Simulated assay, not measured.
Amino acid sequence: MATFDLELVSPEKLLLSRPVEMAIIPAAEGEMGVLPGMAPMIVALKGGVIRVQENGQITERLFVLGGFAEITPTRVTVLADEATPVASLSRASAEARVKEAEAAYNAAGNEAPELREAAMDRLLAAREMAAAAEAA
């Protein structure tokens, strides 16, 4: 089957770099399946799980807290704000992040709409992290 090169980069390190059949990414508009030969585009990512498919099966699941993906017909480069293998997620840490994000969102009640929206994005990403940690 046809493949494309997938690279997942976080500020700390290069987490993944290899040919894959398909990747499902958490685009800001919704989950997006990426296949070889896709039209070039850049998409914003929301907090969620990137699923990597090889030989017809999901072989890797990585949680990203947000970022961008650059898609070309032969390569996908994900620049993640933060990325962690789902198996490494801690339920306690994820729940603590949810509590912090809820407090920040509640504190942003009288702030400018952009600040409230950013706080809501962090809260939604923290909830996705907690859900991914539960499922792991």
Rank of each mutant, 00 (worst) to 15 (best):
L35D: 00
A87F: 01
A83M: 13
A39Y: 07
E70S: 11
N106K: 13
L124S: 04
A133E: 13
A119L: 07
T77S: 13
A131L: 15
V78K: 11
A83R: 13
M38W: 05
L15A: 09
G33H: 08
L79C: 04
F68K: 06
E114P: 00
A126R: 09
V20G: 03
M41A: 14
V78N: 10
P113R: 09
E12L: 12
A126S: 09
G109T: 06
S10I: 05
L45M: 11
M22E: 13
S93K: 13
A118Y: 03
E7F: 01
V86N: 11
A23V: 15
L123Y: 05
L16T: 00
R18Y: 00
E134N: 13
E102F: 01
V98I: 11
K46H: 07
M32E: 04
A107G: 02
M22Q: 13
F63L: 10
T3W: 00
L15W: 04
L35Q: 08
A132W: 12
A136W: 08
G48L: 10
N110E: 15
E60V: 07
K99S: 12
E128P: 04
L35G: 01
M41F: 08
V9L: 15
A136G: 15
F63I: 10
A112M: 09
E70W: 00
S88I: 00
Q57N: 11
I24N: 06
E117G: 00
M22Y: 02
G47C: 08
A103W: 02
A112H: 13
E21Q: 12
Q53F: 07
T59E: 11
A135T: 15
A108R: 06
G37P: 09
E29I: 04
R75F: 01
M38H: 15
S17N: 14
T84H: 11
A126G: 06
L65G: 12
L79S: 08
L89F: 11
G37N: 08
A69C: 06
K46D: 12
A108E: 05
A44W: 00
G67V: 08
E60C: 13
A131Q: 15
T74F: 02
P73D: 10
P113S: 09
E82I: 02
T59G: 14
D121R: 15
G109N: 09
Q53V: 14
G109W: 03
R127T: 03
V76L: 13
P40T: 12
A135P: 06
P36N: 03
E7R: 15
E111W: 02
L123V: 02
P36T: 07
R51C: 01
G33T: 05
Q57C: 01
G56I: 08
I71G: 10
E100V: 03
V52H: 02
D81V: 04
D5I: 11
S93A: 15
E7C: 01
A2F: 06
R18E: 14
V9S: 04
A133T: 13
A94V: 08
L8Y: 06
E7W: 00
E95C: 01
N106V: 01
T59P: 05
I25Y: 02
S17L: 03
A44V: 10
V43N: 09
E60W: 07
A23D: 02
